Simulated assay, not measured.
Amino acid sequence: MATPLTEGVTLELERLRSSVDVGFATTRGDLALLLQRADQTDKCLGEHEDRIEALERTRWPLTSLAALTSCAALAITLWQALAR
């Protein structure tokens, strides 16, 4: 035998359950979106790291070339100074 009070409580519990289910579904959707964005950020970060490594690999010969050029200029200057 159901009384009006228990029917009201049952109805409110159903509404509460529905609200909780909707809230969980929304939270799951938000978490899925955040995971997708984190994956995209990781991918972008990996691409940037690859590009930076490529730039660093091509950059190191420039310092060696500059050192060789300055040594050659010094040698030529000394040679000219000693020739006079």
Rank of each mutant, 00 (worst) to 15 (best):
M1Y: 14
A2H: 05
A2T: 04
A2C: 00
T3W: 02
T3N: 06
P4S: 10
L5I: 03
T6Y: 00
E7Y: 06
V9L: 07
V9K: 01
V9W: 12
V9F: 02
T10W: 04
T10L: 04
T10D: 05
L11G: 14
L11C: 14
L11E: 08
L11H: 15
E12P: 00
L13D: 00
L13S: 02
E14S: 08
E14R: 14
E14H: 11
R15G: 11
R15E: 11
L16C: 11
L16D: 13
R17I: 05
R17Q: 14
R17D: 06
S18T: 07
S19D: 05
V20Q: 05
V20C: 14
D21S: 10
V22W: 03
G23V: 01
F24Y: 15
F24K: 15
F24H: 12
A25M: 02
T26L: 07
T27E: 11
R28P: 05
G29V: 03
D30L: 14
A32E: 04
L33T: 15
L33R: 09
L35E: 15
L35A: 09
L35F: 14
L35G: 08
Q36H: 08
R37D: 04
R37I: 02
R37N: 09
R37W: 09
A38Q: 04
D39V: 05
Q40M: 08
T41V: 12
D42P: 04
K43E: 13
K43R: 13
K43V: 12
K43H: 06
C44W: 14
L45N: 02
L45R: 01
G46T: 07
G46R: 10
G46M: 11
G46K: 15
E47L: 15
E47V: 07
H48P: 01
H48A: 13
H48R: 03
H48Q: 15
H48D: 13
H48L: 05
E49D: 12
E49F: 10
E49W: 08
D50M: 09
D50G: 10
R51Q: 13
R51Y: 12
R51W: 04
I52W: 07
I52P: 01
E53Y: 15
A54V: 06
A54L: 02
A54T: 02
L55A: 03
E56W: 07
E56G: 03
R57S: 11
T58W: 09
T58S: 15
T58N: 10
T58F: 05
R59L: 15
R59G: 12
R59D: 09
R59C: 06
W60V: 12
T63P: 06
L65K: 08
L65N: 03
L65S: 03
A67S: 11
A67I: 09
L68W: 09
S70N: 01
S70C: 13
C71N: 13
A72F: 11
A73K: 03
A75N: 00
I76A: 13
I76G: 02
T77R: 08
L78W: 06
A81E: 07
L82K: 10
